[in-house]
Write a protein that binds this DNA or RNA. Structure first.
Length: 940
RNA sequence: AGGCGCGUAGCUCAGUGGGAGAGCGCUACCUUGACACGGUAGAGGUCAGGGGUUCGAAACCCCUCGUGCCUACCA
């Protein structure tokens, strides 16, 4: 005898079943499964992260797909893992250290990294735990970390190969720099924000004192590094001045007035200061005009010696104030205006970005991007919804080379060594590369001299990266020596044998390693069984905010190194916002914690809600009320199960198909509705329409199975004796329950498992049963059922609207239009009575309305409920008039349509037929109601 | 500045050319032998506004208003 607990209590069942699944290895791929491999790699959450709504939605969708495919018989693998998240993690640990009063510099690189690993060991598993809480069926035995040994090997391999092909190079140019994180950032890692600032108009005197030119700038402090002023060549105001020299205020330097078409004559004064070392536009202009670059801001955001003695060492914001004050004093500040413009901020710490001239490593991106675009154009990878395709193309077309070096410690250290001693130009390369850097004494502008030494020593002496590079000699490496001792750490310079070699201190952008995720997690560079089986992966599930950061780069790397796209489909889901539609963020304090939701409502209800919210192409506003509603749904399922179990004694477990002839209409109907739902759910999941899939199973279970079928079966089930009929109905109940549980399992894994084990198979999991597919429909039964539903609805409607007390015994007379409908109703007389709480019902084609009866006109029948004396005639008249009004409105609409010759000529036949039939029905109905109304009126 | 999206019931949202739907909320009635986390019956909408295409538009096109996001080197 099966027994489930009286009350549905998610807490009690969820952890228990998860442990069972994991211990039994149900999450591992079954290589013997009949259908094709199905693989998903999880977007690796940051180790620093804790589960937020976005992760929850993301994981739920992947788990639904994974469980569904597993049940359908695919070889399913879902690989989990985490990302080392370079800057983010380093910042977290640095903050921890600063509480102890230690800086990472004081600790030293090695000790610091060790400290991060310790931190990771302690807190890094948190998010994995949380993923388990929501039921994610990942194969944890294959869990990866972007900084683990295997992935590090993949990273190094990719770096070296790209380097050998000339696709990785080093260059000295402007880069987005975060003075707080003290590192370079890629274009993507800069977030632009509209900021209210000021536009300053500054007078630059002509060197011959014959006048002046006024420039407009938002960043007066950078003027100290100006090397020209530019105007548009067409600008008539400046024709006479082009080519003349100006005297740069506060410095006395002479700079030229140049003409460049990039200057917008309409903006400001039409004259723009040019600072090639601190502005991307100016850098380009500087290159065109061969202007020198003067760096006046250093890597920590302070002014350099180049800025002049007065400003040296000042913070850039202090320097701005000082420059403004000084200009005012000189009478050169003409005007200040309010001005809003976009200012770049570091995506990790919100500090204002500083464009700085530094040497960095870059990936040449153009050819890689072209292939990635082609792959989508040719449909080798589909992006769903496809509205994202254009964004993808646009971004790929405008893409700049990818800056991959970061001046932090936590990450994949760049596999490049430098030899300060080696004089042999052919020197080097290690798993890599060695470049000779500054072996000559370097004279600096401030008068100091640096006597060579290693790169690290110079950094320690207080020199900036850029300074060192600028003053050093970089030697190009001949191609033939590029690939050398690839995978080992380099100890000795292969060129000169020196052991005094230094590794490049920079690490790679976090996204460099995650770009390899779809194949590195499967074992690449080794051609493992997993890699052979599961690459390309089936679908990548992600939010749009990392489409460029991650998806685009995976596309490029996958195509480059595997020769095929990394995934067949990319499903882009919504961002979860709060109830007001705002992005959830800690600073706004509007974050909804998924774990609290799980505590309150259970993981099943939570998952189901997320699925039901996940309409394509639209953001989700999270609503706790709806979540509550879906918990009620699971509770409903639970209670329905209790009801069904009570009849277990009559369950013969015979198959329901094969004896359709003996089945009653309702049973055939529910089987047919089930078949319809199964088809819909499968189709919707196939198309990533999770909300539609969730809604259709919800509607079926609640409003068809529970509301109708369960109620209908009661009239048979409550009979004392055991009959064949009773057995059939019970078998049908159990069958539909079983299929419903399976249908629901990908959405609601825990409760379905609990119920399944209790009823159908205590020894085996529902996880590995077959997903319902292609059941037979019984269209005729569905049509016949309409008659029964109409009769019930008609009687209920009268009861409800006339407010007839349920305790009042009533009877009903049903005049049917055809014998067939009469037969159907007669067969289900007991049901009809029970559902309408009617004592007695007469059915026939010749039934007459008795005086004092309320009337309901339904398709195929008229229903009379005699309530002599009790009939509130006015209420009944009102009710019927309301119905008449509705009918008249519809008739008016149809009339217009059917009298329109264009409609008759052009509309498709089916539409025409349908409308005609509808019209006839309405006319008939109208006639009947009119008749009744006139009768009622004669009474009053 | 460009690009993308959204505006449908009180709220949150489905609905990609044939008479407006769901969940929650609301109203009335009901402790009927699974479930009050329930049942039954209801109320509630010029589908933002204007123009166009069409026999027919919430849906397709154009414009306006409102709103959200993405991209960008506007000094």
């Amino acid at each position: 005898m099966s027994a489930i607990k009286q009350n549905y209590n998610p807490e009690e069942i969820e952890d228990r079943w998860y442990a069972v699944w994991e211990q039994n290895g149900y999450f591992k791929p079954d290589f013997k499964a009949p259908k094709s491999p199905f693989c998903i790699v999880i977007p690796p959450p940051n180790v620093t992260g804790s589960l937020h709504m976005g992760h929850a939605l993301n994981a739920t969708i992947q788990d639904i797909l994974t469980r569904w495919r597993r049940m359908k018989g695919h070889k399913v693998l879902w690989i989990p893992g985490t990302d080392h998240a370079g800057i983010a993690t380093q910042n977290v640990v640095e903050r921890e250290l600063s509480k102890e009063g230690v800086s990472r510099q004081e600790l030293g690189r090695e000790a610091f990294i060790e400290r991060v690993w310790t931190w990771k060991a302690e807190y890094g598993g948190r998010i994995i735990h949380q993923l388990k809480k929501i039921g994610a069926s990942c194969d944890w035995s294959r869990e990866r970390f972007t900084l683990d040994e295997g992935l590090s090997r993949a990273v190094k391999e990719v770096f070296v190969r790209l380097y050998d092909e000339g696709l990785i190079y080093r260059d000295n140019r402007l880069i987005n720099w975060c003075p707080r994180c003290h590192t370079a950032l890629s274009d993507l890692e800069v977030e632009h924000e509209e900021t209210e600032g000021r536009l300053y108009f500054i007078k630059y005197p002509l060197a011959d004192h014959s006048g002046s030119v006024t420039v407009a700038t938002t960043r007066p402090e950078t003027m100290l590094g100006d090397t020209a002023v530019a105007v548009n060549p067409e600008d008539e105001r400046y024709q006479q001045l082009i080519g003349k020299e100006l005297e740069l205020p506060l410095t006395g330097r002479k700079i030229p007035l140049i003409a460049d078409p990039a200057v917008d004559a309409a903006f400001g004064t039409g004259a723009v200061k040019v600072t090639p070392a601190h502005d991307f536009n100016d850098e380009a202009m500087g290159k065109r005009h061969k202007l020198p670059s003067i760096s006046v801001i250093s890597e920590d955001g302070r002014m350099t010696v180049e800025a002049g003695e007065k400003y040296k060492g000042m913070d850039r914001s202090a320097a701005r104030k000082a420059v403004i004050a000084d200009l005012k004093e000189l009478g050169l500040m003409v005007e200040e205006k309010k001005h809003t413009h976009a200012v770049g901020h570091c995506y990790r710490c919100r500090t204002v970005i500083e464009p700085l001239l530094t040497i960095q490593w870059y990936v040449k991106i153009k050819t890689l991007a072209e292939d990635a675009v082609k792959a989508v154009q040719e449909g080798r990878t589909r992006i769903i919804p496809d509205s994202w395709e254009n964004n993808y193309y646009a971004w790929m077309r405008d893409i700049n080379d990818w800056c991959i070096s970061r001046q932090i410690w936590w990450g994949h250290q760049i596999p490049v060594w430098y030899c300060p001693e080696c004089k042999n130009d052919k020197g080097i390369v290690q798993g890599s590369i060695i470049e000779h850097i500054f072996h000559k004494p370097v004279a600096l502008k401030d008068g100091r001299t640096v006597n060579g030494g290693t790169y690290a020593e110079l950094r320690a002496a207080g020199l900036g990266h850029a300074e060192i590079i600028k003053n050093s000699k970089v030697i190009r490496i001949p191609r033939e020596v590029k690939s050398f001792c690839r995978r080992e750490e380099l100890k000795v310079c292969p060129g000169c044998g020196s052991t005094n070699i230094i590794r490049d201190p920079d690490v790679l952008d976090t996204w460099f390693s995650s770009a390899l995720w779809p194949f590195s997690t499967l074992g690449w560079p080794d051609m493992t069984e997993d890699l052979k089986t599961f690459y390309p992966t089936s679908v990548l599930v992600t939010a749009f905010d990392i489409l460029f950061f991650w998806v685009a780069r995976m596309m490029m790397m996958g195509i480059k190194f595997m020769g095929d796209v990394p995934f067949r489909d990319v499903y882009i889901h919504a961002i979860v916002r709060d109830a007001k539609g705002q992005k959830m963020s800690k600073s706004k304090g509007n974050v909804v914690d998924p774990l609290i939701m799980i505590d309150k409502y259970g993981a099943d209800a939570f998952r189901f809600s997320l699925a039901a919210f996940a309409a394509q192409g639209r953001d989700i506003r999270f609503s706790e009320e709806r979540l509550e509603g879906y918990r009620h749904f699971i509770n409903k399922l639970w209670n329905a199960t209790k009801f069904i179990i009570r009849n277990e004694a009559f369950w013969t477990k015979e198959p329901v198909y094969g004896q359709e002839k003996n089945l009653d209409i309702a049973s055939k109907w529910i089987l047919s509705r089930l078949a319809y739902t199964v088809e819909e759910v499968n189709r919707n999941l196939e198309n990533y329409r999770f909300n539609d899939a969730a809604n259709s199973v919800y509607h079926f279970i609640w409003h068809e199975f529970c509301d109708w079928y369960l109620e209908i079966t009661k009239s048979v089930l409550y009979q004392e004796e055991t009959t064949k009929e009773k057995n059939l109905v019970v078998n049908c109940l159990f069958f539909v329950l079983e299929k419903s549980l399976q249908l629901l399992h990908p959405f609601v894994p825990f409760a379905t498992e609990e119920i399944w084990r209790n009823i159908f198979d205590p020894e085996h999991t529902i996880m590995l049963t077959s997903y319902p597919e292609e059941l037979p429909r019984f269209i005729e039964a569905e049509k016949d059922m309409e008659a029964l539903l109409n009769a019930v609805n008609g009687i209920r409607s009268i009861r409800g609207e006339l407010n007839i007390a349920p305790s009042l015994d009533i009877r009903a007379d049903v005049k049917v239009d055809s014998k067939k409908i009469g037969e159907i109703l007669k067969q289900n007389l007991a049901v009809l009575k029970k559902l309408t709480r009617t004592k007695d019902i007469t059915i026939g084609t010749d039934v007459q309305r008795v005086k004092g009866s309320a009337v309901s006109v339904q398709d195929g029948m008229e229903i009379y409920i005699p309530i002599e004396g009790l009939l509130d005639v006015r209420a009944e008249v009102g009710r019927l008039q309301k119905e008449m009004a509705k009918i008249d409105e519809s008739l008016g609409f149809l009339n217009k349509k059917l009298q329109n010759e264009d409609f008759l000529r052009n509309a498709p036949k089916q539409v025409l037929e349908k409308d005609k039939a509808k019209y006839d029905d309405l006319i008939a109905k109208k006639g009947k109601i009119e008749e009744t109304l006139s009768l009622l009126k004669t009474i009053t």
